[in-house]
């Protein structure tokens, strides 16, 4: 697995698409930092980029890379290596390269601007953690889709649909449900529903730890009171863990039985 990871990593690090992903983050972060200046507000703006852009780009780039792997995977698997090691190696190389370009693209402008010497250093760390976990989760989802759908366009469409569902439609339905049942106590429903979506989970992690809850009124107060505590953090970690395991488990399961 180590060698697959190593060479997959080199291959991806040189990919122009991946470099573009890093440059996009670098340009957006630098521009927002230059225009706004105040770290707290910049981090709030970056939160939306992390929540929407990382899942979207991880899915698209992951799917593109996955279909590339499919073209030469027969050659790799014809060597005395187990499928499990090969596919885990490719998953890790994809996730790690996405994370590295994210850290370079977003981290360097913040570091140059001196975020570590400001009062927003903790908030910045939470932003990075949310981004890293989303990279891992959506890389797994991308590879699961790639090996679940033989047709490339269908796979890409499915990936975009999953992103749209998690990043946009889920919130719409959530909101409709909250409005429809506003006469009932919805705290537990809101907490559970948020944990079923990794994008919402990340949003909650950031809202609860970026001192944004005050901006969100009653919802913010509920989030802060439940997820802002250590117990809440454990729930968030548990939710993340489930979302880290399910796509990778499905991807590993599909590839263990698939014809190449």
């Amino acid at each position: 697995m180590r060698k697959i990871l190593q060479y997959g990593f080199i291959d991806l690090l040189r990919s122009k698409w991946m470099m573009g992903y890093g440059i996009v983050f670098f340009c957006l972060t630098s521009t927002i930092l230059y225009l706004i200046g105040d770290f707290k507000q910049v981090i709030i703006s970056m939160m939306y980029l992390v929540l929407y852009l990382i899942p979207l780009l991880s899915v698209i780039l992951g799917i593109m890379y996955g279909y590339q792997i499919r073209e030469y995977i027969a050659w790799v698997l014809s060597h005395p290596v187990s499928r499990k090691n090969v596919f885990m190696g490719y998953y890790l190389s994809l996730s790690l390269v996405l994370i590295i370009y994210f850290l370079i693209g977003m981290g360097i402008p913040f570091l140059i601007a001196g975020v570590l010497h400001s009062t927003s250093a903790d908030a910045f760390a939470f932003l990075l953690i949310a981004g890293i976990v989303l990279c891992f989760i959506f890389s797994g989802i991308a590879l699961w889709v790639v090996f679940g759908f033989d047709h490339k366009l269908l796979g890409l469409g499915m990936g975009l649909l999953i992103w749209l569902g998690m990043a946009v439609l889920y919130d719409v339905f959530f909101l409709i449900a909250v409005i429809a049942y506003q006469d009932y106590p919805l705290e537990i429903f809101a907490i559970v529903a948020s944990m079923l979506n990794p994008v919402d989970l990340s949003r909650i992690l950031l809202i609860a730890h970026l001192d944004l809850s005050a901006l969100l009124g009653y919802t913010g107060a509920v989030i802060k009171s439940f997820f802002g505590t250590n117990g809440g953090l454990i729930w968030i970690c548990a939710g993340y863990l489930i979302w880290l395991i399910i796509p990778v488990w499905r991807y590993m399961h599909i590839t263990s039985k698939k014809d190449f």
């Binding site: 060479y7 080199i10 590339q68 073209e71 050659w75 014809s78 005395p80």
Partner: peptide, 20 residues
């Protein structure tokens, strides 16, 4: 998978990682 040490396979289409 150990038998593969005694076999060399040439795939029909030459495809490898593009950026290596």
């Amino acid at each position: 998978i150990q038998y593969r040490r005694m076999v060399s396979y040439l795939p029909q289409i030459a495809r490898f990682p593009d950026n290596l």
